[in-house]
Structures are given as structure tokens and as C-alpha cells.
């Protein structure tokens, strides 16, 4: 059973079959096997948040999940969220507010922020900080990221009002 195992899963809506070693993390599977390199690998022990993806609609650390555990699951990566336009306004707000510099944390930040905005349409700054507390950024000092998320929340609320 140390031998490769078959997995079938959905990646950004597309069905996929693969054969993977049990020790392969979902993050490495996405990056190395599928070349979906928007999912970043930082600490590899669940602390930094750079590898955040969505599994069956909920955000998870892809470095703390094995590819074999994703059998039967629906995986969404930053490539999927970006291509569908789901986070286009959030991305624009990040750019406008300089909420990224080196960009390493940005995919995880965007997915986590979008997760918050789906659950809580107009969060205050404390709620934004708390939801993003598991995502490290070493460049921005977070202020600009919180600004961008807050501005997007307000803009979306204005549009739906």
C-alpha cells in the first residue's frame, strides 16, 4: 500500500483521475502533478496559510491534507476562483490598495477573505483580522489587506442593496 493509489476528484469543476503516492500532500499534487502553482507552499505544517484551497466549498490547508484523502472531493484553487471571476473585485481591490507586495501569501489571502465574505457580507475590521489570522503576510503589515477586504465587502453590499 506504500505503492501509488488511484484517486478520482474534481479540480476546478473538471473531473480528474490520477495515481499518487500516499505521502504526497494535496498541495504538492496540485503544484507538481497538475502545475497549478497558484497554491503556494510556505511552512508545510499548517501555520502560514499560503496553501489555502477549497475542498467541497470549505477552506482547508492543502499542506495538511493528503492527495489520497481528496478522493471523491471537489477541489477549488485560486486558478478556479480567478478564472470564474468569483474574486475579480477582491483582486482589483488588493491591487488598488497595494495589499500585496511579493505576492506569496496573496492566493491564500484571497481565498480566505472570500470565505469570510460569503459567510458574513459586511464584517467589521476585527472580524476580518480574526478570519485572516491564520494567513501570514510578511510584506504589507496587514493594514492594506484589511482595507481591501473591507472595501470589497462594502462595494458588494452596495451593489446588492
Amino acid at each position: 500500500m506504500i505503492a501509488p493509489m488511484p484517486v478520482s476528484l474534481l479540480i476546478n469543476g473538471e473531473p480528474m483521475d490520477a495515481v499518487v503516492l500516499p505521502r504526497l500532500s494535496l498541495a504538492d499534487f496540485l503544484r507538481e502533478n497538475l502545475k497549478l502553482t497558484g497554491t503556494h507552499v510556505g511552512c508545510e505544517h499548517g501555520v502560514c496559510g499560503a496553501c489555502t484551497i477549497r475542498v467541497d466549498g470549505e477552506i482547508v490547508r492543502s499542506c495538511l491534507m493528503l492527495a489520497v484523502q481528496a478522493h471523491g472531493a471537489s477541489i477549488e484553487t485560486i486558478e478556479g476562483l480567478s478564472d470564474s471571476g468569483e474574486v475579480a473585485d477582491l483582486q482589483a481591490a488588493f491591487r488598488q490598495r497595494n495589499a500585496l507586495q511579493c505576492g506569496y501569501c496573496t492566493p491564500g489571502m484571497l481565498i480566505t477573505a472570500q470565505d469570510l465574505l460569503k459567510q458574513s457580507p459586511v464584517p467589521d475590521r476585527a472580524a476580518i483580522r480574526q478570519h485572516l489570522s491564520g494567513n501570514y503576510c510578511r510584506c504589507t503589515g496587514y493594514q492594506a489587506i484589511v482595507d481591501a477586504v473591507e472595501a470589497t465587502a462594502k462595494a458588494r453590499a452596495g451593489r446588492s442593496a
Binding site: G49, I59, V60, R61, M65, H131, S133, G134
Partner: peptide, 9 residues
């Protein structure tokens, strides 16, 4: 307990 992405698993 930790952060949302951890609490989901």
C-alpha cells in the same frame, strides 16, 4: 481553536 481552515478539518 486555530483558524477557520484548520477548524474545517
Amino acid at each position: 481553536i486555530a483558524h477557520p481552515a484548520i477548524r474545517n478539518r
